[in-house]
């Protein structure tokens, strides 16, 4: 069993770079790349020595820094109209990240519901106030059970037929999405129509699983073994 430890001090390579810039009191618009690269690599070594898994992102940044450093060494062609500073892109990225870091701190400082301020629990503690009927979120097993019911209720013993019509999962996904966009809410049965085509049932089921995984749709049922309703995950 392996444990993944995330050094909580740094939220990624950009955060580490900002830390180094602050520590060395560097002007962000004029980063001494050689110095920063050296210290950055030292930190990576330190993290490795502490047996921390250095995430790939840190290594990507390391190679980017080295690349910038090597470009700084190249002579600038005089005929170039506007010599581009190889550090520009990095500076822009750092400034942007710094802004959002500040935004995150601002969010944290707010009076957060459930941490600083509290409200009365809702009746039944259900977050969906637009629908009075409390709906239960369906898990994969319940969806599998519904699928099993439909397959077993299909008329068995038909003649075998090789269907030349090919169906693809992405086609079925698109069909379902189209249907849902039009109808807003559909039951599992409605999605199937009155089909007896086992392949279609399977593809519908696979498409639903895929869409649930992508969180494009949501499935609810009011009670156990009740009808499963499929909604678009998009609100309003």
């Amino acid at each position: 069993m392996s444990y993944e430890i995330k050094l909580d001090i740094f939220q990624g390579p950009l955060d580490l770079l900002l830390y180094l810039i602050k520590k060395n009191e560097i002007d962000i618009y004029n980063i001494p790349i050689a110095l920063v690269t050296k210290q950055y690599l030292e930190y990576l070594d330190l993290m490795k020595a502490m047996n921390l898994d250095v995430a790939g992102e840190y290594l990507v940044m390391a190679s980017a820094l080295i690349h910038i450093k090597s470009r700084m060494l190249l002579p600038v062609h005089e005929d170039e109209e506007e010599p581009v500073d190889p550090r520009d892109e990095l500076t822009r990225q750092l400034l942007e990240y710094q802004t959002f870091k500040a935004a995150a701190l601002k969010l944290e400082a707010m009076n957060i519901l459930g941490r600083d301020v509290f409200r009365r629990p809702e009746p039944g503690e259900d977050d969906r106030d637009d629908d009075n009927r409390p709906l239960e979120e369906v898990n994969i097993f319940q969806l599998v059970e519904a699928f099993r019911q439909i397959v077993s209720s299909m008329v068995a013993g038909e003649l075998m037929e090789i269907d030349s019509e090919r169906m693809s999962l992405s086609d079925r996904i698109n069909e379902i999405m189209e249907q849902l966009t039009k109808e807003k809410v559909l039951t599992f049965l409605e999605l199937l129509g009155d089909t007896n085509d086992r392949l279609k049932v399977i593809y519908t089921f696979l498409a639903l699983l895929e869409l649930m995984k992508l969180r494009v749709i949501k499935a609810y049922q009011a009670e156990q073994f009740g009808t499963i309703r499929i909604y678009l995950a998009v609100e309003e």
């Binding site: 939220q11 950009l14 955060d15 995430a55 992102e57 940044m61 990225q93 942007e96 959002f100």
Partner: peptide
């Protein structure tokens, strides 16, 4: 992908 670009991590 845009979020990842800003934050520099997955």
């Amino acid at each position: 992908s845009e979020i990842e670009k800003v934050r520099g991590v997955d």
